[in-house]
Nucleic acid binder design. Structure first.
Length: 714
DNA sequence: AGCACGCCGACT
DNA sequence: GTCGGCGTGCTC
């Protein structure tokens, strides 16, 4: 009989590794402990998943755990379970999730610098070294460099093998610049005691009291909170302050760092007891906040999706704010859906889970309505006026609205023009036969760039030269009436000379964008053109006039979520408007405005939802079916193509009723790797998605080199 | 992931 | 010959 441990390493592999636990470590090592163990030729730290006795040695050679550094508390069992469950749902290796749960100190890697030795210098001067090894040495001739710099400079994939051989021969020296590694203060887990009878907050509606009862019962459960932003914030603040009195931890998730701004009042009113957590924290603040949380001094954490992995316990309240925001899906790095992860973590700890949004996803609304867990706080009437125009944008600005805009500019007011096209015109068409230039892949109209006469697909990013004549009838091609940011800028500059027109859109570079944002904040930028990207960067309630330029055009995207996405964009744009009588919203559409645009502008979510749910029922989209997107990528397109065919074969065998939709085109333009194949699959229900995941896991067993990911739309 | 190993084309 | 690039498979 000997004691063994199953270890999970932070690697993109799905297996655990078995090690013998030496007697001298037996007293210290527990499930969740961080241990160091030999793996191949390396020594890696991993986490203990299981400790067990085995009466006989396994068939493979088992190594021994090397050490158990006492530099961090054990990961709680719930975090281990969380990582495993999330891995099963996302097909991301569980160890990568555990890595996200590590305390700051474990993640700060020592900085390594390389220096040339005397011997290396001699060797370099002798001129005997050629190729990569010579290049590396001559780079190091006059200064010390980091391995990453050399790797980028020389564009090699695997730098370590060269460095190892060079350092073995004594030609270079590896100097570890040990950071000032202050060990983390490890404090015992906080105890939550009820000191006095909890005081219920005042002015809470009946539904709020029911939520508090749920919180007190400790049985968990979830709900969807809708209504205006102000009302939701006020409501949540009361619930959170109440929870902080005597319950465990509260975690409030926001979709992006920028969105923490509106929670500042809560942070201030709970000063010291609430901290923020996201990827942009400085090392020292990260350490400070971690210590605050783990000593129990701070019990409220406001953060982005990475905060879900903080290993504090018990989590009694979990809020997912702005649940409609797609940034909750993490596509790069370990891929996972944070809204689903929130459900998993809340389920494991029986915490109360509150999703909140002004314009929730259609499926989410449906599920909570069915479950009776919908909580609508309503909204105040808005003061501003909304008008619709159907004429040409240029004409509109030059004639009808010129005087009004001029007047507003004189009063130093700020105006925002929201466009959803970056180029000059939204499309190129033939006035004779009605032909429209479309993207071959996505089948949607491509927008025209005036500068270089190129057509760009705003959906997949594909670019090609614009044809001069109509390929169907040979007639002249003309720019269409859906206008882009280039066109608008030209017009505004012409009509209001001497006024600077700011354009805030993706792809301008972070420095320039930052400058524009600052100018707008200072009140200097008065005429602002922006795409959806601008809505994430600008702060709310600044503008006295908002132009929605062709908000209807995104409805044509080949995407079942086009409706709810368009609605969410308009809702967000409306938050930019100053809520005053003199404010005005202008919607400019190419034809008569679609019903959805009217519903969005009057914030008639109910009306939108009823229409949309009918449409989804008819076309059998979620929530009436479950869509699963499967991505496959590897280093070459040929291999991912071959594997995708193999995968499809297996899926057809396992699921005869399976319906293939697509292939779907990648919407993410920043997703550089083109060697990815995507499949979209329809299943009758979410339960079936579980079986599909099992089948995908089976597939991955014999193809571990491919990156496989899934995204489920219930 | 990182590392070893083996295959293959290019170049002293 | 042998150097370096790249694909493949393994790590208890």
């Amino acid at each position: 009989m000997a004691t063994y441990c199953e270890i999970l390493f932070p690697l993109p592999v799905f297996q655990t590794f078995l090690y013998r636990l030496p007697d001298e470590l037996a007293a210290r090592v527990r499930v969740g402990s961080r241990v160091v163990a030999p793996l191949g030729s390396r020594k890696l730290s991993g986490y203990v998943l299981e400790i067990k006795e085995l009466s006989q040695e396994p068939e493979f050679r088992v190594k021994e755990i090397a050490a158990c550094p006492e530099d961090q508390p054990d990961l709680p069992g719930i975090i281990l379970q969380f990582a495993l469950e999330l891995s099963a749902r996302s097909l991301t290796a569980p160890g990568l999730f555990l890595e996200m749960a590590e305390p700051p100190a474990a993640r700060e890697k020592p900085r390594v610098k390389l220096a040339i030795t005397e011997k290396g210098l001699k060797e370099l001067l002798s001129g005997r070294l050629k190729g990569r090894r010579g290049q590396i040495l001559s780079l190091l001739a006059d200064r010390q460099l980091s391995p990453v710099y050399i790797k980028r400079k020389l564009k090699v994939r695997e730098i370590n093998s060269y460095l190892r051989s060079l350092s073995q021969e004594g030609l270079v020296e590896v100097r570890e610049k040990a950071g000032k590694k202050k060990p983390l203060k490890i404090t015992p887990a906080p105890v939550f005691r009820q000191l006095a009878l909890p005081v219920r907050p005042e002015g809470l509606p009946e539904s709020g009291h029911r939520l508090l009862q749920k919180l007190e019962s400790g049985e968990g459960g979830s709900c969807l909170l809708t209504g205006s932003q102000e009302r939701r914030l006020e409501f949540l603040q009361k619930i959170i302050e109440y929870a902080a009195q005597h319950h465990g931890f509260t975690l409030v998730l926001v979709p992006e760092i920028q969105r923490l701004e509106k929670w500042q009042p809560l942070l201030q009113s709970l000063s010291g007891r609430a901290v923020v957590w996201h990827s942009q924290l400085t090392d020292s603040l990260r350490r400070h906040n971690w210590n605050q949380i783990f000593s129990g001094r701070a019990r409220i954490v406001l953060g982005t999706r990475s905060a879900l992995f903080l290993p504090f316990q018990p989590l009694s309240l979990l809020v997912v704010d702005e649940e409609q925001d797609d940034l909750y899906y993490q596509a790069d790095g370990p891929a996972f859906e944070a809204r689903e992860a929130a459900r998993i973590r809340a389920g494991l700890e029986k915490s109360l889970l509150i999703y909140t949004s002004d314009c929730p996803r259609v499926s989410q609304f449906y599920h909570h309505r069915q479950a009776g867990s919908l909580l609508d706080l309503g909204r105040e009437e808005v003061c501003y006026r909304v008008d619709y125009y159907h004429q040409d944008l240029g004409r509109l600005l030059k004639k009808e609205l010129k005087e009004e805009i001029k007047h507003r500019l004189e009063k130093e007011e700020q105006l925002l023009f929201l466009v959803n096209r970056k180029g000059y015109a939204g499309y190129l068409f033939c006035s004779a036969c009605g032909f429209v230039a479309r993207c071959e892949q996505c089948r949607i109209a491509m927008s025209l760039q005036k500068k270089n006469g190129e057509l760009t697909c705003s959906y997949c990013g594909h670019t090609r030269e614009a044809p001069a004549d109509c390929p169907v009838c040979g007639g002249k091609l003309r720019p269409g009436r859906v206008r882009g940011s280039q066109y608008l800028r030209e017009q505004l500059q012409e009509i209001f000379p001497g006024k600077k027109v700011e354009v805030l859109e993706e792809g301008a570079g972070e420095k320039d964008s930052e400058k524009i944002v600052r100018r707008v904040k200072s009140g200097k930028g008065q005429l602002v053109i922006g795409t959806e990207y601008a809505l994430r960067r600008l702060s709310e309630g600044r503008f006295s006039m908002l132009f929605l330029v062709n908000p209807e055009s995104s409805l044509n995207l080949p995407d079942f979520q086009a409706g709810e996405r368009t609605l969410a964009t308009i809702y967000k744009a409306l938050e930019m408007v100053k809520n005053e009588d003199s404010s005005r919203v202008v919607a400019v559409t190419a034809g008569p405005e679609p019903e959805l645009v009217i519903q969005a502008l009057s914030r008639n979510y109910q009306g939108f939802w009823e229409k949309e749910i009918e449409y989804r029922r008819l076309l059998n989209y979620p929530p009436f079916s479950c869509l699963v997107e499967i991505g496959l990528d590897s280093r070459s397109l040929r291999t991912s193509g071959r594997w995708s065919r193999l995968l499809l074969e297996q899926l057809r065998l396992d699921f005869p009723e399976l319906e293939l939709i697509g292939p779907r085109i990648s919407r993410k333009k920043w997703r550089r790797e083109k060697r990815e194949v995507r499949l979209m699959v329809r299943l009758p229900s979410e339960e079936k998605a579980g079986n599909l995941l099992a089948s995908l896991k089976k597939f991955r067993q014999h193809r571990p080199a491919t990156r496989l990911w899934v995204r489920v739309w219930p």
